[in-house]
Amino acid sequence: MTTIEPWTSAEWLAAATGWLDEQLAAAGRTRTGPVTQPHVRLWATALRAPTDAGPVWLKAPGSETAFEVPLYGLLAQAAPRWVLVPLAADVERGWLLLPDGGTPLGEQVCADDLPGALAEAIPHYAELQRDLSGNVAELLSFGLADMRPPALPERLDQALEAVGAYLGHHATDDDREVLRRAAAARPLVEDWCDRLASGAVPASLDHHDLHAWNVLVTPGGTPRFYDWGDSVVAHPFTSMLVTLGFLRLQHHRPDDDPGVRRVRDAYLEAFGDLGSRDELVAELDLACRAGKVARVLVWLRGLRPQGFENAEPFQRAPVQALAAILAESPFDLGA
């Protein structure tokens, strides 16, 4: 049985719908139509329900990402303006009831305008990270993986072993070469991590999947960052691996593109008291390079329980992320 099957069973759907209705009643809201299930993934599912006060969503993360439920509680306390504040949460069951946040930023603006829109939104995410830098112990207690620089060399060892096991007899000669080259790069990764650990930027929450489709923007222009299921505790700058990597990959913008630099610089403004611009840019590049180790393990977290055969369309994502560690660009995602 895969983790998808319980989420699509009649018994699970009935229980989730019953809980949703109970929480709506407690909040003084009424469901006005049928519950639908628009998203079922290997790692989570989401139900949607119309109500008399707008749509709501029930999110159920899998066991590997159940930390998202208590994490939303902390985010609602520390940064309520920049996240969706849950209407209800059940930590034991791993269920969240969230208000609808509107349309993702990636659907609101054209490709040419996307860097400018991200540059407006991303400083608020940086503000959220700075606000949470004192909550690292609490974040780790929720079950978020420790991907801080001192831990990453050992995490690389774990990634190499896990990717090899995940690929199994499906590994190609090219895959085995990727594993060999990544293993040989351990001293380089150690150097990156030593340099990051000696810097002035404290560890914090890393969303680790912060692209334009995980940023909601209200008609008034307030951004809200959501879908925290890939989160880890890390050097905060590793967040920009996906943000800038998506601009590079999806919109074919090189690293020195003015739009890419605009988003990067807007993000770094929130950390301007911790170093010069050149120092922060260099640290961000290092953090994104080292953060690719975490990306391998985040992919495996969702895919490994299913096995290689059941992981379409993401079968090769972990080995591609591993190969990206040695890519020329710090923002190369390996896809």
Rank of each mutant, 00 (worst) to 15 (best):
Q23F: 10
W82L: 11
V215Q: 04
L58K: 01
L152S: 03
V40R: 02
F237C: 02
D255R: 08
R148K: 04
E138A: 10
V263A: 06
L297C: 12
L128P: 12
E127H: 13
G221L: 00
P258M: 14
H211K: 08
L268Y: 04
P61T: 11
H235Y: 07
T103H: 06
D206L: 09
Q250P: 00
Q315H: 09
P305R: 13
H235R: 12
H252E: 13
P6V: 11
G62N: 04
A266S: 15
D209Y: 05
F67Q: 04
T45V: 14
P55C: 13
P219M: 05
W57V: 01
V40L: 12
V233H: 06
G229H: 06
C193L: 01
G199R: 10
W12Q: 14
A183V: 04
W213A: 02
P61D: 07
S204D: 01
T3G: 14
A323W: 06
T172G: 03
W12V: 06
W192M: 03
R253G: 01
D131F: 10
V233D: 07
Q320Y: 10
V56D: 03
A200F: 08
D157A: 14
S239T: 15
L297A: 06
M1I: 03
G168K: 02
L152P: 09
A317Q: 11
E190M: 11
T32A: 11
P236C: 10
R81K: 15
L247K: 05
L47R: 06
S239W: 01
P80G: 12
R31P: 00
L20Y: 04
N135Q: 15
W7T: 14
M1G: 12
R48Y: 08
L268F: 05
D230Q: 09
V293K: 03
V217L: 11
V40Y: 00
R41A: 12
